[in-house]
C-alpha cells in the first residue's frame, strides 16, 4: 500500500502540495484527476523520490520511502512518462530492456532482447520495430514502447503520467485498454494521473481529485458521477462555471 500523509511541496512562492493525504491499496488502480498545474506530476514524482517533499511522509507498505534502499525500492516500480521519455540514442529494444541489462540481476543481451520483443508484442508492436530508433516511431507507437519499458521487469507498481496526452481518441482508447489489461493481468498497483475522463473511466478502480494542493475528493470510480462535490462535478463535466476558476 502507498500512503501519503500531509505531504507539502512548494517551488519558491508556489505552494503546489499543501497537505496531501491519500492511500492506494495494493493491486488497485488509482487515478488522480485535476486541472493543469495542480501538482499531479509533482505528487507522482514525490512518491518516486524524483521530487523531495518539504514535509509530510510517504510510505510504501509501511516503510518511509526516503529511508528505503533506493535500488530495491525503484526495482518495484515501472513508469510511463507523459512524452514517453525514450532514450533517443538507443534502439527500441534497448529502451525496453534497459533495466533488464543492468544491475545485480542483469540478463545476457540475447535474453534481454527476447523479453523486450515479447513485451513489444504484448503492447501490439511487431518485432520489426525492435531495431528502430524512437525518433522513427509515431507518437502512439512511442507511448506503447514506453508502456513496454514500464512493464519489462514486471514491476509491482506502475505509474502512468498522462498516458493519452497528444493521442487521437482511437489510439487513446487502445492505450487505455492496454493499461487496464496489463494492470489486471500483472496484478499490479497502478497510479495514473490524467485529465482525460475517458482514461479515468477505463483505467480506474478509485479516483482522487487534486485541487488547491489537497485531495478534494476520493472514492470508487462508480461513485464519481453521483458525488455532490462541486469541484468534481465541474471537472468531470468540463464546465466553465463553478468553484474551479477558469481563464477565458
Amino acid at each position: 500500500m502507498i500512503t501519503l500523509s500531509n505531504v507539502h511541496k512548494a517551488f519558491g512562492a508556489n505552494r503546489v502540495l499543501q497537505g496531501v493525504n491519500l492511500s492506494v491499496a495494493s493491486g488497485t488502480s488509482m487515478v488522480i484527476i485535476g486541472g493543469s498545474g495542480t501538482g499531479k506530476s509533482v505528487l507522482l514524482k514525490s512518491v518516486l523520490g524524483l521530487v523531495r517533499p518539504d514535509s509530510g511522509q510517504i510510505t510504501l507498505d509501511g516503510q518511509d520511502v526516503t529511508k528505503a534502499d533506493r535500488d530495491a525500492f525503484l526495482a518495484r516500480f515501472g513508469m510511463l512518462f507523459q512524452g514517453g521519455a525514450l532514450f533517443d540514442s538507443l534502439r527500441v529494444w534497448e529502451n525496453v530492456a534497459f533495466r533488464l541489462m543492468r544491475g545485480a540481476k542483469a540478463l545476457p543481451k540475447r535474453d534481454a532482447r527476447e523479453i523486450a520483443i515479447e513485451k513489444l508484442r504484448r503492447v501490439g508492436l511487431k518485432p520489426e520495430v525492435a531495431d528502430q530508433f524512437p525518433a522513427e516511431l509515431s507518437g502512439g507507437m512511442q507511448k506503447r514502447v514506453g508502456l513496454a519499458r514500464a512493464i519489462a521487469a514486471e514491476p509491482e507498481i506502475i505509474f502512468f503520467d498522462e498516458p493519452t496526452t497528444g493521442l487521437d481518441p482511437i489510439m487513446a482508447g487502445v492505450i487505455n485498454d492496454l493499461i487496464r489489461e496489463i494492470v489486471v493481468e500483472m496484478g499490479a498497483t497502478a497510479m495514473t494521473i490524467t485529465h482525460d475522463m475517458s482514461s479515468v473511466r477505463a483505467i480506474a478502480d478509485n479516483v482522487a481529485m487534486l485541487h488547491g494542493g489537497v485531495i478534494r475528493w476520493t472514492g470508487p470510480v462508480g461513485e464519481m458521477d453521483a458525488t455532490p462535490d462541486p469541484y468534481v462535478q465541474q471537472f468531470i463535466h468540463g464546465r466553465a462555471d463553478g468553484p474551479i476558476e477558469s481563464v477565458r
Binding site: D71, A85, F98, R99
Partner: peptide
Amino acid sequence: EQIDALVTLS
C-alpha cells in the same frame, strides 16, 4: 524527462 526515466530505471 529522460533523466527522470533513468532514475526510475535504477
